[in-house]
Simulated assay, not measured.
Amino acid sequence: MSNQLDPIQSCPVTSTEQIPLTTATTPLVATPLVTPTIKVPVVLAEPTLQIAVEADITLTPAATEIKRVKKHVFLNQVKLVPVAFTRIAGTDFFMVTRAKLFVAGHIRKNIEYASAECNGALQDRIADVPFSGFTDLTFPQTIGGPFPILGISEFAEANFLNETTQMDARLDKAFFQNLVKYNEQPFGELVAANFFELDFSPVMADPEGTFDTLREKIVLELTVKVLQVQQIRLGTGTNVITPNLTGLTPPVSPTVTPPVIHPTESC
């Protein structure tokens, strides 16, 4: 009987030789546009929010040492709620000058730790730490920057006299008008997350001792983009294009006359 080992067999696979293709430059014809109008997402704000959360995470089996913690952020919502407006002259649309930005989501933590078992495998614990909050935004964020734009819907009603008596109302007759504007919803995008974290056992463990609870204090600096799809007219003077929808009550920018203050006469 031979003591020599059998030679290692190769593992061939099927391959297909690729045929080289020829390439040629495609001629392009440019059509001149003096002032094209495009519809694109416009960055309204890019704030960095500081979020502080605390959580207790149970470890089963108990841990003797934390080896590594990896973190990611998942956002459930980024919602803009306008609270102050300025009318766009000659239209029924308004620029938002101040708004509350609501943010909610969770931090997904992957904790790797050693247990008390000698030569044991590393344990893995995944935990979702929720957070939510809001911040105040003013627009424009920079000089000459964009505003969120919203159109306000209009409802009007006209009532009539009793044409027989001219003394009372016709409750069975009315005129209604509704102008409904459908706006582009501002939305958010996740940009970056910067974590500052302190992890410790609420009860200090002895050397080589175990602990089954990990208390975490996390400061998260979360950067998001707030955008809205808007119509932009390109050219020398780039402008945001707003439709002029005529309702029964045309928009009029009120002119406020400051009160005249007379000096108080002394007796």
Rank of each mutant, 00 (worst) to 15 (best):
L21Q: 15
L49P: 01
Q77M: 03
G235C: 01
V103T: 03
A63T: 02
Q230W: 02
K79Y: 05
V224A: 09
E184H: 03
M167G: 12
T223D: 07
L220Q: 02
R170L: 12
V53I: 09
F196N: 11
S266F: 03
Q18S: 12
K217G: 02
D136C: 13
P140G: 12
T25P: 04
R170H: 13
P130L: 02
A89R: 12
Q50K: 01
A63S: 03
V252P: 07
C11D: 10
D136S: 14
E208Q: 10
C118H: 05
N244L: 10
T138I: 13
A52L: 12
F155P: 00
I107H: 04
N178Q: 12
T26C: 14
F160L: 04
T165C: 08
F187W: 09
V260Y: 05
F102A: 08
Q230E: 04
R170W: 12
N183Q: 06
T236K: 13
F85Q: 04
D92G: 15
P186M: 04
A192L: 09
Q141H: 00
R215C: 04
F93Y: 08
R215D: 03
T14N: 13
E216I: 12
K70I: 01
D136T: 15
L5W: 07
V78C: 09
E216S: 13
T246A: 15
D124N: 14
V219F: 12
Q230Y: 02
E189H: 06
Y113W: 00
F175R: 03
V69F: 01
I143Y: 07
P146H: 03
Q230T: 01
T26Q: 10
G237I: 13
D128W: 06
L59C: 09
L171E: 09
T23Q: 09
L220S: 06
Y182K: 14
D168K: 08
L75S: 10
V203F: 08
E197W: 03
N239W: 00
P146N: 06
K181F: 13
A158V: 11
S132F: 09
Y182F: 15
E46M: 14
G90M: 10
T257R: 01
K100W: 08
E163V: 13
A121K: 15
A116R: 12
I88P: 02
E216L: 09
L49V: 08
A55C: 04
P186T: 05
D56T: 06
Q50S: 10
K39I: 14
D6W: 09
P12T: 00
A193D: 07
I88A: 02
R215N: 05
P263Q: 05
P20Y: 10
K100R: 09
V129T: 10
E265R: 01
P20C: 15
G144I: 13
I232E: 01
V78D: 02
H262K: 11
L161H: 11
G188D: 06
Q231K: 15
I8S: 14
I111Q: 03
V129C: 11
R233G: 09
I126T: 15
N110H: 11
P263V: 03
P20L: 13
T35Y: 07
F102Q: 07
G105P: 04
G90I: 08
